[in-house]
């Protein structure tokens, strides 16, 4: 009895710690208050500000668009890289594996800083372009795509590919029609990982982004230093919307019939 109570209490306490701030902010986002403490009247003001301020809208759509571009490019590159490495010699495989591991364990600050120095100080690329930002986030995301696709390649039935070749497919047909369909779930989950990495990234973006462009992360960090309470409380609305979206998507994902166990 006591034991059960303790277990409930511990779980409840940690859940409270994890969720209370977001939920409290969610409640306050529907009021006119600018600080936590006193609730002053129901209002949709924050949501209206959020959806009518061009600066905020640009920042949100910019972040989402960037995430999709980076994720699509990383998924193509990482999948192609994994397939190519899988069918190549052992030595090359080890070399690629090692290099692939570097951005995974490295601190994002170091990754962002080093890429920025390389592109701006070494290759003299203008910081006004989106090239450094996209490349920087791809360096972060692609290794994770590779890491998800590779095990799936190793698990799949090797004979099918050879059978396709024997039956008259050329290599690219065999890849597109036999290999790719088998690894598809891993490619998709690599894509999802890339999206979330890009959405959550602050460090690489802050070193490589053009000065006039902001992602949600860099915008929030700058906004909290300023004293514009209108923007600050509009961001409460944004975090509430993101929270609700994440909850809905998690529930949807849990409802879907599970295809095979995750890798």
């Amino acid at each position: 009895m006591m034991k059960k109570f303790l277990q409930y209490a511990w779980i409840g306490m940690v859940l409270l710690f994890l969720y209370a701030p977001i939920l409290i902010l969610g409640i306050y986002s529907f009021t006119e208050s600018t600080m936590i403490g006193s609730i002053r009247g129901f209002s949709l003001k924050n949501y209206i500000t959020l959806f009518t301020t061009p600066e905020l809208l640009q920042m949100i759509f910019g972040t989402v668009a960037l995430a999709f571009v980076v994720a699509i490019l990383s998924t193509i590159l990482g999948t192609a890289g994994a397939i190519g490495t899988f069918y190549s010699k052992k030595n090359t495989e080890h070399a690629v594996e090692l290099a692939n591991q570097i951005p995974v364990v490295n601190a994002d600050v170091v990754t962002g800083f080093s890429i920025c120095i390389l592109l701006i100080a070494f290759f003299n690329i203008e910081k006004d372009s989106f090239f450094p930002l996209v490349i920087g986030q791809m360096t972060l995301c692609t290794p994770f795509v590779y890491l998800q696709v590779m095990p799936r390649l190793q698990q799949m039935d090797q004979h099918l590919y050879e059978a396709a070749l024997d039956l008259g497919c050329n290599t690219s047909q065999a890849l597109m029609k036999v290999t790719l369909p088998q690894i598809w779930p891993a490619v998709l989950s690599g894509f999802m990982t890339a999206i979330t990495l890009s959405l959550d990234d602050y460090f690489i973006a802050t070193y490589t982004k053009p000065a006039t462009f902001d992602t949600i992360s860099t915008y929030v960090v700058n906004a909290t230093k300023g004293s514009q309470t209108e923007i600050k409380t509009a961001l409460w609305a944004l975090s509430t919307i993101i929270f609700v979206l994440v909850v809905v998507m998690t529930i949807a994902a849990n409802r879907l019939p599970k295809e095979e166990e995750e890798l």
């Binding site: 409930y8 701030p21 959405l199 602050y202 929030v220 909290t224 994440v246």
Partner: peptide
């Protein structure tokens, strides 16, 4: 208690919310 229905997703869900927004929330508290 929780073995049958894993509640793990409740504990990893916050990972998906942008961390700067979460920190701002904690800061207000």
């Amino acid at each position: 208690i929780f073995r049958e229905h894993s509640l793990l997703f409740l504990f990893v869900l916050p990972m998906w919310i942008n961390f700067t927004l979460r920190i701002t929330a904690m800061k207000e508290i």
